[in-house]
């Protein structure tokens, strides 16, 4: 987070410098004005979007998804994994460990790829942000165009990499064991 803030500040200063070099002070004022106006316009949308994000994370749980996907396999597994990917909230520090657990506990490689691609492309908890921050037309086109990718890529993954699933499973399990050794007793924080 702190690194991101520093990098962004530097990028803003760089762009501000460039704007100043091109058009002088008026360009700087225009940049500030555009930023402020967009922020104020979008603020109510953001407030509701964050309420949705918080509520989504409240009504879904990673354990349930894991249990639910454990039994499914083949095409059904891919479909279920894609739906799960769309539903599971949280950033990469949540969905990659979940994907690792899925693979290690017996899911096929295509199932895991479908899960991750759906998480990347369909994420319901990100949808409010997408609508708040981008034009609705773009958001709708983007969802429509990429809609089939998670399932297609899951099938492709099974076609291409089924033979190496065991090796992948072992290497992911090794990573998990390492993480466990470095970070024992890591519990899930729950709101109460």
């Amino acid at each position: 987070m702190r690194n991101t803030l520093i990098i962004m500040t530097l990028a803003i200063l760089g762009l501000a410098g460039l704007a100043f070099y091109r058009d002088g002070t008026p360009a700087l004022m225009r940049g500030l004005f555009i930023s402020g106006r967009t922020l104020i316009e979008i603020l109510p949308l953001l407030a509701v979007a964050f309420a949705v994000a918080g509520l989504v994370s409240q009504v879904t749980s990673t354990q349930a998804v894991n249990k639910w996907l454990g039994q499914a396999s083949g095409f059904r597994g891919i479909l279920l994994a894609a739906v799960a990917g769309a539903i599971v909230p949280g950033g990469p520090y949540i969905f990659f460990p979940l994907a690792a657990t899925l693979l290690v506990s017996g899911a096929r490689i295509g199932t895991v790829i479908a899960f991750l691609t759906a998480k990347n492309l369909w994420t319901l908890s990100r949808l409010p942000m997408e609508f708040a921050l981008l034009d609705a037309r773009i958001v709708i086109i983007r969802y429509a165009v990429t809609f089939v990718f998670p399932v297609l890529l899951g099938l492709l993954g099974n076609m291409l990499f089924s033979a190496s699933t065991d090796k992948l499973r072992q290497s992911v399990a090794r990573m998990q064991n390492q993480a466990q050794a470095e970070n024992p007793g890591k519990g899930n924080k729950k709101c109460s």
Partner: peptide
């Protein structure tokens, strides 16, 4: 938002 704003002028 600052970044986005300055992209548009820079």
């Amino acid at each position: 938002f600052l970044l986005a704003g300055f992209i548009q002028v820079a």
